[in-house]
Design a protein around this nucleic acid. Structure first.
Lengths: 341, 341
DNA sequence: TTGTAGGCGTTATCAC
DNA sequence: GTGATAACGCCTACAA
């Protein structure tokens, strides 16, 4: 049905090779033949089969991105950055959403062997050594976003600093009773950024001489619902925290709900800090740690493309800047005067 | 570098054809040869090149989805439904995010000719007759989601009914001064669902004898920010509306912000209705029209796959049920007693 | 400048 | 059952 390069050749009275040269605008072709060929191409509405071309050249101009829960707002934003870059340089984008360990393995296996992609972008997903070995064997370019591995290039947020920033902010506002709400997905696809943020928070707490009682640490599945439960429990404590630091904005939303449930005024009775600075954060007036999600996607894609263009595949770790965005969900510690430790 | 079917053949002492038969588990192959071949495949960690296979069979097991603004929450949810079905039947998913008319044309052109996909899913995007012709010529299966065309299968929400439902709800609560906030994207990719919802709303208004002054209709770009502006203007009117119907939850968020800005209590002084029932709607307590986004994606993908499996490609329009979800953003008309028209 | 021939890695149609 | 052989549609030496 669809016409081939041979049809064009025949109608233009040239050989298939010549048509191919026109297609790839090789310099060595007579202007008049070129014109003739182009005319026939136009008439036939002919487009070369990208499949055949790929097989022949070994280049697919396709990259795959695999990510757990690609539906999460933070991931979507990264995906958007990736798509923006790729479409600008005319690469196609294959997406794999993985929600179970099995899907994860399947996708990675498929991609590192099927040889129908040039590059791989892993977001929020730490590959195993064996997987990295296969990726290298397949000569695939690969960049990690919000994940890491010693042999691969990676884009990460500065999560430890982010955690520190959050604590410092509350500390400066006079808070001494600070609780943490962290996420620990059921399926651990990566050493969660969450734990790094938590680590930063604890480091800063220690440095500032803030006590960290065990009951002030709540860890649970990601998402608003679970966070709401956990924060409700925190607020029901005999000595509840005056500040709560969440490792994501979604969790912070849950915290806001819990505060509302418990009748705690924000920020007069309770301060809440989120992480990500999603779009809704401005709506919520949420004080949060902003990390450049869109940019992380762009940057990861850029590096991948440069590797695809022949740049050396160094295992460099690029750490993106974060910053605290102060809004109205945080305020001075209730009570007025400093609290005895 | 990577091994081919011939390497396997050689090492197993058979012909490539036989290896191929083993790969596609054809019945007519001696159990012992099969075992031998499988062993070699294992040893070599061999996987057939999907590219070569595709070229040879003409089937790619890949479908593309193209959508404007695939980053919008409602689209993401649909995408998730699509991905769920496709991965379950082992199809790969190529995504095209289009944000300009040019990208849109480019994507459609590319896909309908490159012949490297089996099917096409268009979400929120009405193809032109010419485009449909090309799609048919390329023998591509194609299903529309939240869009329509006389010659293609489509999944749509019952937008007209949704608009009616919203008006009926406010009417029953006693409201007589009802304003509409609709979205009109800068680039019109499809006859926006928004306008259908609006139509339903107007029909119901007329039926209920509700006046529809021109100043009660605000149309602007999608998104929270613009809606906030438009609603602020509505609230500043000499005779402001007591109820506002938005054609999306994002706009409803903007409306809530505007109400907050203007110091209007929700729902005591102002009722607001959204559309979509996004995840945040529960957080906001937003009364809204729920449409099954995830299901629409699944259903669209299902139909596409069935077509790919040989089902007839009928241009059937499947209309998904919607329902009103009542929450706390709507209440009785302020003032108590009925208003003189 | 252009044509020819071989190859990319499979599958499919024949014979044997 | 299994092995040649010819597609699939393009690219790219190598020749001419």
């Amino acid at each position: 049905m669809a016409s081939t390069i041979h049809d064009v050749a025949r109608l233009a009275g040239v050989s298939a090779g010549t048509v191919s040269r026109v297609l790839n605008d090789s310099p060595r072709v007579d202007p008049r033949t070129r014109a003739r060929v182009l005319q026939v191409i136009e008439d036939l509405d002919f487009r070369p089969s990208s499949l055949a071309r790929r097989l022949s050249t070994g280049k697919t101009r396709t990259v795959a991105v695999v990510s757990p829960y690609f539906t999460r707002p933070s991931v979507v934003e990264r995906l958007r950055g990736i798509a923006a870059i790729l479409s600008s340089v005319d690469y196609e984008l294959l997406v794999f959403n993985v929600e179970t360990a099995q899907q994860r393995d399947h996708a990675l296996d498929l991609l590192s062997r099927g040889s129908h992609i040039d590059g791989l972008l892993l977001v929020g997903l730490d590959p195993s050594d064996a997987e990295v070995a296969r990726i290298e064997r397949a000569a695939l370019a690969c960049v990690l976003i919000d994940a890491s591995h010693p042999r691969l290039a990676a884009i990460v947020g500065d999560d430890v600093s982010g955690g520190k920033l959050a604590v410092r902010h509350l500390h400066e506002l006079g808070h001494r009773r600070i609780a943490f709400v962290a996420e620990m997905p059921r399926e651990a696809f990566s050493k969660p950024a969450s734990s790094l943020r938590l680590r930063g928070a604890r480091l800063e707490s220690r440095a500032a001489g803030i006590a960290q009682p065990a009951e002030y640490l709540a860890v649970g599945e990601q998402g608003r619902g679970r966070a709401r439960e956990m924060v409700s429990a925190l607020l029901a404590l005999p000595v509840p925290p005056t500040g709560i630091i969440c490792t994501s904005d979604m969790q912070a939303m849950g915290a806001l709900e819990a505060a509302r449930d418990a009748g705690r005024a924000i920020p007069d009775e309770l301060s809440i800090v989120g992480y990500d600075d999603l779009d809704i954060a401005t709506y919520l007036g949420l004080t949060t740690i902003r990390q450049p999600l869109f940019e992380s996607g762009m940057e990861g894609a850029r590096i991948l493309v440069s590797q695809l263009n022949g740049a050396p595949r160094r295992a460099r770790r690029r750490r993106l800047k974060i910053e605290l965005v102060r809004r109205t969900s945080t305020g001075p510690r209730p009570g007025g005067d400093p609290e005895p430790a």
